[in-house]
Amino acid sequence: MNPINQETTSSYQIHIRPNKSWHHMNWHAIWEYRDLLFLLVRRDFVSKYKQTILGPLWFILQPLATTIVFTVVFSRVARIPTDSIPPMLFYLCGLIGWMYFANCLNYTSTTFVTNAGIFNKVYFPRLIIPFSVIISRFLAFIIQFVMFIGFYIFYKFFTPASDTFHLNPAALIFFPLLIMLTALLGLGMGLWLSALTAKYRDLTQLTTFLTSLWMYATPVIYPLSLIPAKWHKVMALNPMAGIVEAYRYCFFSVTVGNLFFYMLSSIIMTLIILISGILIFNKTERNFIDTI
């Protein structure tokens, strides 16, 4: 047989061969499947609220209940300071940012395990699945964010605590970037974990446990100002530390002096985790089916 000639008239051509180079990414194919991406987002969203009585209300109830628990336990009982911001607002703001990250991470981390049935039967760029997760989680984030704005307005205009915090318009410009950073970091971590759980099934149990511990290493229930100066360099190793603090900076204008340093660390680490995560996911995608 003649060596296979690649030139062709058809616009579609698939060339199948082993060991595509490790950094080979077919971004074009992902674009081709964009309709699938949005249908998957819809499926995630619709199936989630069709199964419950309260429907989309769950998106609000969960952070709200957690915030109330935090307010009672950490503010009233443990008396952890909240930078003089009303505790309810303080926790809610950090929590919805954190939850967006944690959900992106948890739901993408099981990509291979939960979709093994589909992956075994039909090909599409596998990255579509994690992408659909971060988008559908973003919709949940929006709903939660609207609730936060409600509480924000209430505290700002109808309570005596209104002087303790004010909006930071300069920081708010970066707010969309901040959300993107949260999603990409969650995605990057999730991609890493999905590759690991494909190989080691027992890590699935660990993921949720580790993310809940991670929350306590992140300034969600305490302000960054509580950390002694000498520990800031260590704290900045947690890419979520700066991100959660920045969420609050946007709405309360209160933070420690070195938030810029924290953000720089977050951005660099997010990029490293995301790029390496995509590569390892890509590698797993190619031989995962042979191991199930």
Partner: peptide, 9 residues
């Protein structure tokens, strides 16, 4: 394209 060949194309 569900899985890759070991050799050949």
């Amino acid at each position: 394209q569900i899985t890759e060949p070991t050799s050949g194309q």
